[in-house]
Each structure stands twice: as structure tokens, then as C-alpha cells.
Design a protein around this nucleic acid. Structure first.
Length: 577
RNA sequence: UGGGGCGUCGUCAAGCGGUAAGACACCAGCUUUUGGAGCUGGCAUUCCCAGGUUCGAAUCCUGGCGCCCCAGCCA
């Protein structure tokens, strides 16, 4: 069965010569060959615990943990928790849960940047002693002013030349809480005229009276990212520090701190393009807006690209890992077609999901020549892709439900499902022929179909060898279990929502369709959470982990099956959901 | 008139001077008791543009053009 127990990584596959490696793996291969770090490879995944992980993070996780594993190395999980006003343990817990779910493990190497606060402080003191850092009294606005612009150099802070002893004293008093929040900063003394703004005497410590989720009120000064990250990497013996393109400009600063200080090692930062995917957005900030403005029902809404959302929707960890491996790693910014994600998902689900019959929009069918009280059990294959999945019995009787979409009173040329006078096969059961269409006299809506069956076609084939064009799924009315089914479509109607002035303008009003009164084959009364089922001819579905109850079954559609008929309709201009 | 990156098929992406991998998508056919799955075939004479070097250039050189990122006491 297709539960989450299948979340084991594909296994270590070391890069072989001749393999087409991405530029990062090539670089690491070279480093190892050159004996750098004694051939050791050690990476880290460094999330800030200020939000939930999305599939873009999955790319980074697969890269960080994946390369380490491939090169026989290790990958640490380190929370970059240097800004207490934005962070919280509940995010950290969710992140750990997601990383495990994806199939990766950091062993006993769970670290927090906050664990290094004392060491970081000592490094800062060392910088001051060496005349490489100073306490600056400029306000935030003044610092900005002094920084200059993209095209003009900055000016030295008037506090830049304080003596070492004065800096030492002031920094110690900053730490002791003698000064107001924001009144002073500790800055690296680098170059106010650098073309790289990050090198214009960056702030490395700020005064911030906020209770930290791990260190409480022990500190009222907190180190900045640039100072913290490279030193944390070094302290952990990281060899390759992979991050996104945004940090390319920060690499000189990353290197500067490590060069100026007496550190255990000097990791190599390598930047790659982060993931963008069509019809969705990947920014934590914007995803937060979707949640806060109520466009979705929380971070784990199945339409969200968050790992929590994808997970609830029924995505498998394996399919996400496979996706990440197929999109590759490069420096070019791009938007990956979501169809590739759906492809790796179907690929996985097709192999493992048990098949089952379910009617989403029921249309009653009466088999006129079938005995009133008779019930037959027909044998159905659980998974044609996996004979070991066995078979099951499904009840057949005089009153059935079929899919409304499977009947058309006036069928167009390429429609070969049921129509008046036409014969089709009910999967695993009999051939039936539609002999009459019953309508509501008021609305004209079709309420029932009268059909006849051919007893000789039991099992689904005719002894006389005659063929039918269609095989349809069905459910016995008397035996069916009812359920609510939620259908999902892309959250946005445009490939790149960010190309819009306001991305919410292209939210898809039909991204969620709730269907009630769906009829499922009886075996689904015992449907298990975390198992993905294929509802034959419709798609893959799983129990909604949040809203499904013993009394009210709720299913989520993970993804549709590829649908040739839908494509034909689309071409001719009509469509359905 | 700053600094850092990037430009190869509709979308990702190999290629690293020897004559354009692969995947997704798409199209066609076969097959099929899921219009699913599977199988077969098709799909860049051309690599942002223009010059140059070379027997030979997507790969080297020169000059353009286009796109992205950076002016948080965020990460």
C-alpha cells in the first residue's frame, strides 16, 4: 500500500565518472579528488524557524542531504535562529517533521545557531581587539545615509576610529544591557567605498531586547546572519555551504570573517538558483499572505506548495525527491513546469496505489432485467501494476450509480461512453445497454437511466466476441458508502502569478470544488489514512487527515489521472472539472 | 557612471574546441476490461545578437543586447 512508510531515500548512488553532474556535484568531485578537507564532504541545511517549509526548500534539502550522502559525507540540520522576534519553536518542530517525512535524517547533528551565541560573542571581541570591528552610535537611518547608494560610495562613520579599548568597553556594555535597543551596533571595519554594499562596514551585532525561544532573556544583543552563518559553518566543520543565488553578493563577506578570525576551517559557499514552479508562488512572505487573507485554509491547505500542504494532499515523499532530482541544479533562474511534479507523483502512485471504484457525481442506473433482490460479488483486481496486491470482491446489484459524465443523451463523435441504445462494459461486471432515460419533468434533468444487462458477459467479456468501446466504473447503490470529496486545481490561473502587479488577482476561483454525496465501493468504509487510492478512471485520492471522521468520510484528490477525453474536449472548446 | 550573476527546444537541463544528451509537455501510431498504465516513432541544421580566432566554435576572443539580485540594526 502507498503509505508514508515508503519514504526511504533511493539510496546512496555515488557519482560515477562520465555521469552528467550538476555544477555543484562537479565542484565537490573536484574538491574530493584534490584531497581538499581530506576528501571529507559535510553539508548543512540551515532553515530559519520562522515559517513552514515549501517544495522550494525540498530542493535545498535534497541537495544538501543528497550530495552529502552520495559522497559518503554528512549533513547537519541547523536552525538559523538569530532573530528572536520572528522565530518560534513550533516552526522548528514542523521543519524537523517535514525533513524526516521527506526521508532525510541528521542523526545526532541537530544544531542551533543560538547554541553558538557565546562563541560568536567571543569572535566579535577578537575582531575588536584586532581593530577589525567597532561600536557605532549611528541610528539606523544614519547608517543607511552613510552607506551611500548603488552607484556612490559610502562615508566612514564618525565612530569608525574609536580605540580598541573604548570599543571593547562599549561592546561589553551593549551586552550588559546598558543601552537602548537600536542605539548602537557593532560593525565590521571593511570598506565604505566597496562596490559590494555588503562590505560597507556591515552591522554584525544589534541590541534587541526580545525573549529568544531557546536562550530566553540571556542576551539582549544578537548577531546578524552574515556573521553567524559562516562561523557556524566553520564551527561544525562544514566543507560545502550551499545556498541560493541571493547570497552570492555575501560570499566576500562570508570569506572575510573566516579569513580575519582564527577558525577551525574555511567552508566553501556555493550558490544555486532556487526553485520556482508554474501556477504557484514560493515566497514565505507571500504564502503567509494567502493564509492571513483567507485565500486558503491554512498552511496545510492541500492547494499550498508547502510540504504540509502537499503531504495532506497525498503527495509521496518519493515523488518529491524524484522531482527534485529531475529538475537539476543550476544557476539559471527558471520556472519549472508543475506538470513535471505531477508526473513524478503519478509515476509513484501508479505503481503502488490500490485501485478502487468511486462515483463522484452519481447518476442512478436501474438494470431492468436484473432480479430485484439479487446481489453478486464480482472479483476486482487491486492493482494491475502489482499482481501481489491481489483481488477483492465488489457487490453488484440491480440499482447502481455511474458517473454523470459517463452518459450523454446526445453524444459527440469521439464520446464513446454510455448513450441511449449504446452498450458499454461495467468494469469487472457486465455489458449493459441503455434503453431509457428518465428526466425530472420540471427541470428536464436526467434523474435515472434504465438499462438491460447481458448475463452472458459476466466478468466483462462477451462469449460471442463482440466488443464495446468503453469500460466504466460503477458502484452498487445499496452497498455504497457516502463521502465528501474535495477536488483541487491550480491555485493560480497564470503560470507566473508574480508577473502580475498583485498576484492575488489571478487566484483561481475554482481551485477547490467540494463534492458531497459521492458514492464509494464498500471496501472504502475501512479506508485508512495515509493510504493513497486510485479511484479508477478519476485520479488518486486519500483521506483528508484533518477533516475526515468516522461518520463523515472526506477524501482529497491528490492528482487526476491523465485524461485523453478531457484533452479532446479542451481542444474542441468544452471542459469539465 | 557601482558590484554580483545569468542567457542552449514550449518548460527544465546536459554540453567544457570535433560537428546539439536526457526529462516533462506536445504530436502520431500500437496496445489495453481504467479514454489509466505500457510500447514505438516524431519533435533545436542550431545554441541572445554581431564580428573575430580556428581545418573545425554552443564551447575561445571582442563588442553589443536582454534578464535577475544587492542600498534590513531580516535570513
Amino acid at each position: 500500500m502507498s503509505a508514508d512508510s515508503d519514504n526511504k531515500p533511493a539510496g546512496k548512488k555515488s557519482p560515477a565518472p562520465g555521469d552528467s553532474l550538476d555544477f555543484i556535484r562537479s565542484r565537490i568531485t573536484e574538491d574530493v579528488a584534490a584531497g581538499k578537507n581530506n576528501g571529507r564532504v559535510h553539508t548543512r541545511f540551515p532553515p530559519e524557524p520562522n515559517g513552514y517549509l515549501h517544495i522550494g526548500h525540498a530542493k535545498a534539502i535534497c541537495l544538501d542531504f543528497g550530495t552529502a550522502e552520495e559522497f559518503g559525507g554528512l549533513c547537519n540540520l541547523r536552525f538559523d535562529d538569530t532573530n528572536p522576534v520572528k522565530e518560534d519553536v513550533r516552526y522548528a518542530e514542523s521543519i524537523m517533521d517535514d525533513v524526516h517525512w521527506l526521508g532525510f535524517d541528521w542523526g545526532d547533528r541537530l544544531y542551533w545557531a543560538s547554541d553558538y551565541f557565546q562563541k560568536l560573542h567571543d569572535f566579535a571581541v577578537q575582531l575588536i581587539r584586532d581593530g577589525k570591528a567597532y561600536v557605532c552610535d549611528l541610528t539606523a537611518d544614519e547608517i543607511r545615509e552613510y552607506r551611500g547608494t548603488l552607484t556612490e560610495p559610502g562615508r566612514d562613520s564618525p565612530y569608525r576610529d574609536r580605540s580598541v579599548s573604548e570599543n571593547l568597553d562599549l561592546f561589553e556594555r551593549m551586552r550588559a544591557g546598558e543601552f537602548e535597543d537600536g542605539s548602537r551596533t557593532l560593525r565590521a571595519k571593511i570598506d565604505m567605498a566597496s562596490g559590494n554594499l555588503n562590505m560597507r562596514d556591515p552591522v554584525i551585532y544589534r541590541i534587541l531586547r526580545a525573549t529568544h525561544h531557546r536562550t530566553g532573556d540571556k542576551w539582549c544583543i544578537y548577531p546578524m546572519y552574515d556573521f553567524t552563518h559562516c562561523l557556524s559553518d566553520s564551527l561544525e566543520g562544514i566543507t560545502h555551504s550551499l545556498c541560493d543565488l541571493d547570497f552570492e553578493d555575501h560570499r566576500p563577506l562570508y570569506d572575510w570573517f573566516l579569513d580575519e578570525l582564527d577558525v577551525p576551517c574555511h567552508p566553501q559557499q556555493i550558490e544555486f538558483a532556487r526553485l520556482n514552479m508554474s501556477y504557484t508562488i514560493m515566497s514565505k512572505r507571500l504564502l503567509r499572505r494567502l493564509v492571513e487573507e483567507g485565500h486558503v485554509n491554512g498552511w496545510d491547505d492541500p492547494r499550498m506548495p508547502t510540504l504540509q500542504g502537499l503531504r495532506r494532499r497525498g503527495y509521496t515523499p518519493k515523488s518529491i525527491r524524484e522531482f527534485c532530482s529531475r529538475i537539476g541544479v543550476a544557476k539559471r533562474e527558471s520556472i519549472v513546469d508543475v506538470a513535471l511534479l505531477e508526473h513524478t507523483l503519478r509515476e509513484d502512485l501508479n505503481k503502488h496505489a490500490p485501485r478502487v471504484m468511486a462515483v463522484l457525481r452519481p447518476l442512478k442506473v436501474i438494470i431492468e432485467n436484473y432480479p430485484e433482490d439479487k446481489v453478486e460479488m464480482v472479483e476486482a483486481v487491486n492493482n494491475p501494476e502489482d499482481p501481489s496486491a491481489g483481488t477483492r470482491e465488489v457487490p453488484f446489484s440491480r440499482e447502481l450509480f455511474i458517473e454523470r459524465d459517463d452518459f450523454l443523451e446526445d453524444p459527440p463523435k469521439k464520446f464513446f461512453r454510455l448513450a441511449p441504445g449504446r452498450e458499454v462494459r461495467l468494469r469487472y461486471a457486465y455489458f449493459i445497454t441503455c434503453v431509457d432515460v428518465i428526466k425530472d419533468p420540471e427541470s428536464g434533468e436526467i434523474t435515472e437511466l434504465r438499462c438491460t444487462y447481458d448475463p452472458a458477459t459476466r466478468g466483462g467479456s462477451a462469449p460471442d466476441g463482440r466488443k464495446v468501446k468503453a469500460t466504466m466504473h460503477w458502484v452498487s447503490a445499496e452497498h455504497a458508502v457516502e463521502a465528501e470529496v474535495r477536488l483541487y486545481d491550480q491555485l493560480f490561473t497564470e503560470e507566473n502569478p508574480l508577473a502580475r502587479d498583485d498576484f492575488t488577482a489571478c487566484l483561481n476561483p475554482n481551485s477547490l470544488t467540494v463534492l458531497t454525496g459521492c458514492r464509494l465501493e464498500p471496501s472504502l468504509a475501512a479506508a485508512k489514512p495515509r493510504v493513497r487510492y486510485q479511484f479508477e478512471r478519476l485520479g488518486y485520492f486519500c483521506i483528508d487527515s484533518v477533516d475526515s471522521t468516522e461518520t463523515t468520510l472526506v477524501f482529497d484528490r491528490t492528482v487526476t489521472l491523465r485524461d485523453a477525453w478531457a484533452r479532446i474536449q479542451k481542444k474542441s472548446g468544452t471542459k469539465s472539472n
